[in-house]
Design a protein around this nucleic acid. Sequence first.
DNA 1: GGAAAGTGTTATGTATGTCAAACGGATGTT
DNA 2: AACATCCGTTTGACATACATAACACTTTCC
Lengths: 135, 135
Amino acid sequence: MDIWKKFEENNITHSAAHHLLAILELKEKRGYARVTDVARELNITTGSASINLKSLKGKNLIIEDENKFLALSEEGEAVARAVLMRKNILYNFLANILKVKPEQAEIDSCKTEHLISAETAKKLQEFMEKYEKAA
Amino acid sequence: MDIWKKFEENNITHSAAHHLLAILELKEKRGYARVTDVARELNITTGSASINLKSLKGKNLIIEDENKFLALSEEGEAVARAVLMRKNILYNFLANILKVKPEQAEIDSCKTEHLISAETAKKLQEFMEKYEKAA
DNA sequence: GGAAAGTGTTATGTATGTCAAACGGATGTT
DNA sequence: AACATCCGTTTGACATACATAACACTTTCC
């Protein structure tokens, strides 16, 4: 699965990762994503979002149509999905196995989702599969 | 144990955490730590180290004597040890249980050491104790 | 048709963290 | 005494990531 690798190649910041995730979520939830929607989702001003998104456009992670509607490029979607996958693995481990409180598990997995390596993410998931089968 | 708490109170950056850790390590390894030593340890210029350390002095995490030799304040040492403890727990989990390669476990634990909550750190350690006893 | 609301960009400012380069003080060497 | 080296600070520049505020351009509503 080379979705694991996409992440390693793109060294993405926490902020950038969340901009991509916001677009992914907005598109799935409502079908579209504009600068304002992303800003609202991330709780930042439209000014900040505009600037941040411009830089992601420059990196070809985001595409904009004639009406300023945003979408993830193929590359951007791969990166976003890789981050999302990591977050879910981390969250499940923290909440279900370590029994960390849901809100704290959410915070911790969110802070680290973009930082753990492909190797760690993969091995953590394998560990959880084995662990849950054994239990 | 309130060493767990010290960290939560001080919301420390990755950079700041490593400056404190560098001083802790240098003092233990060689008995002293100066701006230059910290810079060398962290692979940054003395200019950067000088500025960064000044801000940590302002937060009373670092003390400087008449000869510009640096030491951690009581508070600074508590923070540094809390971070170190988290890093060790993470490293051990990654390397010994997940079997992540040592170099990668080092990188991943280093990136996340200052981000995980006290709750997660504590529960991860408890989990490891149980897990290793069972094995 | 005009005011109001919504949308996006740009300008300016803050904070962190980095660098290179210049400078001043102390120390060491010849 | 003079030159060289080491040490720490300061300065100016850059990148990221945020905020406010001002501005232009739609769209919507009366």
